[in-house]
């Protein structure tokens, strides 16, 4: 059976370095709701590949700089 993976993200750090971008501003840039950004940032929701790319694009970085994963035992 495939091992479970946990998706992690650096959104809070990236927002800080993007001139303390608000969650609402990020939501607008990524075309999502603020609620979704809050959930993604808190690790409560793993976004679709499309939204993940749009979030990365909003910061002007690659997707790997925003999201990473950890294999859970």
């Amino acid at each position: 059976m495939a091992k479970k993976i946990e998706i992690k993200n650096n959104i809070r750090t990236l927002r800080f370095f993007a001139n303390e971008m608000t969650q609402q501003q990020l939501a607008e840039k990524a075309g999502a709701s603020r609620q979704t950004i809050v959930a993604v940032e808190a690790g409560k929701y793993a976004p679709s590949l499309e939204l993940a790319f749009r979030i990365a694009e909003a910061f002007g970085v690659s997707i790997g700089e925003v999201f990473s994963y950890e294999v859970k035992e």
Partner: peptide, 10 residues
């Protein structure tokens, strides 16, 4: 309008 946005999570 911003509050009422419905996306993939919804």
């Amino acid at each position: 309008e911003l509050e009422m946005v419905e996306d993939e999570m919804d």
